[in-house]
C-alpha cells in the first residue's frame, strides 16, 4: 500500500494549483476507476478483490478531495505543511465575524414555510458571490506563496461553506422533508 501514498494531483496528471480543470479531473478519475474498481475483479481471488477495494477507495478519496474547492484548498495548504486544523483567533477579522453574524441572523429570521424559499435562494446567491470572490483571493495568495494570508482566506471559505450548508438544511425543512 506504500505505493499508494502519492500526491493527488500527480495521481490525476494535473498541475498542483488552485485552478483545476474539472473535466480533466473527472475524465481521468473515470478512466482509472475503470481499471481498479472491484467490479473488474468480481470473479477474481480474494486478495485481488481486497486490493481492488483499497485502490478504488483511495481513488475516490483523492477525487473527492480535489473536486471540492474547499477540500482542495485545505489539501494544497497541507502539501505546504500548513495545518488548517489549527485555528488562530487572530486569523479571523472582526469584519468577517460581524458579516457572518448578520448573514446568519438573516437566515434565522426567515419564516418556517415555503414562503421563505425565494429569500433562501437570494441568500444563497449572495453567499455564492462571496464564495467565488474568496476562492479567487485564495488562489491569488497561494500563487504568491503567501500561505499565511491564504490560510486566513481558507477559514473565511470554511465559514461560507458552513453557511451554505445551513441554507440547504433550511430549504429542506421548508420543503417539508
Amino acid at each position: 500500500m506504500q505505493s499508494l501514498i502519492r500526491n493527488y494531483f500527480t495521481l490525476f496528471n494535473l498541475p498542483e494549483a488552485c485552478e483545476l480543470d474539472q473535466e480533466s479531473l473527472s475524465a481521468e478519475y473515470r478512466r482509472q476507476q475503470g481499471e481498479v474498481h472491484p467490479d473488474r475483479f468480481a470473479n477474481a481471488e480474494e486478495p485481488e478483490k481486497l486490493r481492488a477495494v483499497q485502490l478504488s477507495s483511495y481513488l475516490n478519496e483523492a477525487y473527492e478531495t480535489l473536486k471540492s474547492p474547499l477540500r482542495r484548498a485545505a489539501y494544497l495548504l497541507s502539501l505546504r505543511d500548513i495545518d488548517v486544523e489549527q485555528v488562530n483567533q487572530n486569523d479571523l477579522s472582526m469584519d468577517l465575524l460581524l458579516e457572518q453574524i448578520q448573514l446568519r441572523e438573516k437566515l434565522d429570521e426567515l419564516p418556517i414555510d415555503e414562503s421563505a424559499l425565494a429569500s433562501l435562494d437570494a441568500l444563497r446567491s449572495e453567499v455564492n458571490v462571496k464564495l467565488e470572490k474568496q476562492e479567487k483571493k485564495f488562489a491569488e495568495f497561494f500563487d504568491l506563496e503567501n500561505f499565511n494570508e491564504a490560510k486566513k482566506v481558507y477559514h473565511e471559505l470554511q465559514f461560507l461553506y458552513k453557511l451554505s450548508a445551513e441554507i440547504d438544511a433550511g430549504e429542506e425543512i421548508r420543503l417539508g422533508y
Binding site: R30, G34, D39, R40, N43
Partner: peptide, 15 residues
C-alpha cells in the same frame, strides 16, 4: 453479464 465476463470489461462501469 458484464461482471461474469460475457461482455468486454470496457463496456461500462458503475460507481
Amino acid at each position: 453479464d458484464v461482471l461474469i465476463g460475457n461482455k468486454s470489461p470496457d463496456s461500462f462501469l458503475l460507481l
